[in-house]
Amino acid sequence: MARITRDEVAHVAGLARLRLTDDELERFTEQLGTVLDHAADVASLDLAGVPRTAHAMAVTNVLRPDEPRPSLDREEVLRSAPAVEANRFRVPRILGDAP
């Protein structure tokens, strides 16, 4: 697999909602390349037919009775919010052009 490029790193940063400085871009391109080179042993294996394991101790269909119970205290939750208005989280403008 071709080594990760600076442009790809910049693209991935956008997907991850991170803005990197030129210095970070430079360093991460080099460092991610080194780690991905090491991962080539995994990427190049022929594992056709081997199932994937997402959870080692998979537990399925965990249900509980559908009974109302108290949830977190609203005031206590909002106390740690960066900005609050009318008992809700306040955020800057959402609609409009993407950055």
Partner: peptide, 23 residues
Amino acid sequence: DGVRYGLRVDAEDTAAMNVATRS
């Protein structure tokens, strides 16, 4: 993402605020 808890770095809209906060 700067919305519900912890650090928020303000910006002109929410998407830019998310990026500024995380960065």
